[in-house]
Design a protein around this nucleic acid. Sequence first.
DNA 1: GTAGGGTTAG
Length: 652
Amino acid sequence: MVVPAVALRRQLALVNMRRLRKLATSKNHPSNATRLIGFSSSAEASSAAVSNPAEATLNIYPSDATRRTGFSSSSAETPSAPIFNSAEFSQISHLIAQLRWSKVKPLVNDGTGETILEQLFAHRVRPEVILWYYNWSEREFRVFHSLDYSCRLVISLAGANMYSLVRSFWDRFVRNARTGVTVSLIFHTLVNLSSRKSVNSKVVDMLVMAYARNCKVDLAFEAFERARGYGFRLSLLSCNPMLRGLGDEGSFEKLEYVYKEMIRRRMVLDVVSYNTVMSGLCKGGKLQRARDVMDDMRVANISPDSGTYNILFDGYVKRGGPGRMYKADALLREMVTRDVAPNEATYNILIDGFCKDENMVGAVRVFEEMKTRGLKPNVISYNSLINGFCRMGNVEEAVKKRGDMIDAGVQPTIITFNTLINGFCKQQKLREAMELFDEIYENGLFPNSLTFNALIHAHCKASEMDRAVDLRELMIKKGVCPDVSTYNCLIGGFYGVGNKAAAEKLFAEMKDNGLKPNLVAYHVLIGELCKAGEVRKAVRRLDEMVGLGLKPTHVVYNALIDGHCREGNIKAALSVRDQMVKEGKRPNVTTYNVLIRGYCKKGKLEEANRLLNEMLEHGLTPNRATYEIVQDEMIEKGFVPDIEGHISAASN
DNA sequence: GTAGGGTTAG
């Protein structure tokens, strides 16, 4: 006994009309009635709903206790909703369950679809069907449904054990910035709607997970904090991603706090929790704390795995300071003693570490050890090794390793080629670099922006600007977009050959092409302007970069200070130094060197001497440039700086 | 739907 859809729609429209008219004249709920009428009949109001969905949603359904709990369709307490009789409604829900949106759409007469949503809840329609309708109507009418509906939906999904739908619901939910929807409001709404603690806990758990996974770590953290007061118990499902988010974000204090708090809440942490905490701590340079966490892990009877060790290895290699590879070596021995098997990643981290330490003997030793342990070096192992040899200037050996890799059945990638091309470029062997470039295609690979940038950079360094520009043309022809680095290389190159006009034109062109100049772009530009004696222009560029949200580094400040000193304007130079300090950057050796030379050039040797002492008091070690300045500017002029121990070093 | 490895410009 299916009622034809057209007939049904006509019938419903009629019913709605009658109800709406009745409501409009009703004195009992004037505000609700006028609002509803407004939305169903006025184009103005519905366009307002589109342009400002959050506000519109709030207007239609003020959070009113009777509405929140008004589940029954026959209840006189829910006057704003046109009420369909059960036969009508079963037709509607049938259409929704079949996702026949073109048929559903004409039935919506409130501009937001919330009227039908209310009815779906009232009729206890299957939660997933309500979810379909909820999602469709939000998209269709460009609105966010009120938080009440969101929470009711999520609770009914959870009550039916449809947790994967709860997950995806919250995922969508948190991705949109809903004005006024705070963590505490969500919690408050949830406890008002449901008293089932376990269900609420799971719902909140998944909310926190959604926050953590969608880069809303601060909200995840807030929810984690508030959850305790509400008695919601969270799981690793939400806490592990949050730990990761905190680490990624650099919130190391919060990371340690959450870690300790998880233990205090008697949560049972797993390997992933510990590894994530350690990874975050390593990123923050807190290597000792990371080691402590590994000890905690053993106390908790969780065995560190190869991943745990790899995280520590990576920490040592990247932030371990002097002697880090020895520590790493010791850790490798400990790992083996404890019966944790190193894997490919373990060796790759170590190979790369030795290479960065310019210790190719160590790198090759680890590489060989890897093979004796029955592990096959992969493309990353070879690339690291090749990069190591290239950095040492031994490109011939690097090329040989590429041969080894092919013999071992490991195919070179574009990274292999880029590394080798870079190696040749650094040696100014442009012909060899170009030959390799041709080989890329023979190997069925395609050059990327890094390939071209390396070549362009090398040609710029060699003052071959015509070839550099040709390469950029080729790049575009091959479908590779020039990026900020491409421009940086070319701009630096043109300044280098004294073609200021071309350099400035490129800087403008870069911005015209929608590329945002980055830190390096400004380093190049400001450095060159200072060198050319155009300090005032350089200062303008500094303001410009600050305006773009880029934080000037020591290099930039020092270049400006140098520029002012070269013009003999020490006062201006000192004010740049003050600005630098205000920005939280401590003057470094170069800063002092530049200022000292500035004073010397003005003949103010006492002032220079004073700065020299200040530099030592700040615990900075003079470098070669310092000695040269002292030698050439002070001792030459018969002035004896009172930093005796350091002067003898200068004469060496 | 867990953490960990390789290439550029200053």
